[in-house]
């Protein structure tokens, strides 16, 4: 084991209380951050699932005739991002409707003629955001014969707006907790430094380089960040496991998507982030203390 790591472990042991408080603060912050991450990851996945396929319906005006179809197809295709394009005539649409609703339905019997429009069902290939889909729909709408385009903008858009609001709140909270953890960490390092003032002085006098003097503090900061991060995630995981095992009997029948735990990548990112936090807190306070 590197002498610096050994030294840092001894120091953590000597300053038990201070280090416990710091690690606890970091893990709490990481917990808050990872709860948000958990929410975002799952919500993101759900939205993606709902959005999957990128289906849109293009409703055509009454004066549409079949000989217009090839030209219309060409125009839509030229706008790009189209994977599939299927024409559904008003008669087909009515047939489908009849199949879906029981044919004996009184509602259909009272129907005079066919009120449904001709339509094109399109499948978009690549789109990243709702904005892109929106822009694309706008372009299609500008074609004269097109009456309207429907792509679930109503509820999905609203949901996305709420989701984005959550996201902003989440980022703000994460940032706030990051700052709090950073403040606590840098203060711990400062206190640790002052509690070892004599040691630092002696090290300098016997010819230790600044790197040698600082290294244990950095190792300590990194360890605190790392342990704090792992602890925070562990608390979340335990809570998650407790909830999800209870949910399979109770809630799962109401919630039709499963809440998945954070991906390995996100967990790695969180632990990396908290380790960085420990390092950065150390860097800040040492920069302030030493010259």
């Amino acid at each position: 084991m590197s002498p610096f790591i050994k030294k840092a472990l001894t120091d953590i042991r000597l300053n038990r209380f201070l280090n416990l408080v710091t690690i606890f603060t970091i893990s709490l912050s990481i917990l808050v951050v990872s709860v948000f991450m958990l929410f975002f990851e799952n919500a993101g996945r759900v939205i993606e699932a709902w959005n999957q396929g990128g289906r849109a319906m293009i409703y055509l005006k009454d004066n549409f005739t079949m000989d217009m179809l090839p030209e219309l197809k060409d125009r839509i295709n030229s706008l790009g991002n189209i994977q599939g394009l299927v024409f559904i005539s008003k008669d087909e649409a009515l047939d489908r409707l009849k199949k879906e609703i029981s044919s004996s339905s009184a509602f259909l019997k009272t129907l005079q003629g066919n009120p449904l429009p001709d339509a094109l069902e399109i499948q978009m290939t690549s789109y990243n955001s709702l904005e892109e889909v929106e822009a694309f729909a706008e372009k299609i709408k500008r074609i004269e014969i097109v009456d309207d385009v429907e792509y679930g903008q109503g509820w999905l858009g609203k949901f996305l707006k709420i989701f984005n609001l959550f996201k902003i709140t989440g980022y703000a909270m994460c940032g706030l907790f990051f700052l709090v953890a950073l403040f606590i960490t840098s203060n711990t390092v400062r206190l640790a430094f002052y509690s070892r003032k004599l040691e630092v002085e002696v090290m300098r006098l016997v010819g230790a380089t600044e790197t040698f003097i600082k290294a244990p503090f950095y190792v300590e900061g990194l360890l605190q960040g790392f342990i704090g991060g792992v602890l925070g995630l562990a608390i979340l995981l335990i809570t998650y496991l407790m909830f999800s095992s209870g949910m399979t009997q109770g809630l799962s029948s109401y919630i039709y998507f499963d809440v998945r735990f954070l991906s390995i990548k996100t967990m790695g990112l969180i632990i990396f982030g908290s380790t960085f936090l420990g390092w950065f807190g150390c860097y800040l306070s040492l920069k302030q203390i030493l010259r």
């Binding site: 090290m203 016997v206 010819g207 230790a208 380089t209 040698f212």
Partner: peptide
């Protein structure tokens, strides 16, 4: 030992 550690001597 601190003196020798600071000077980077071998364990």
């Amino acid at each position: 030992a601190l003196v020798l550690e600071a000077a980077g001597e071998k364990p």
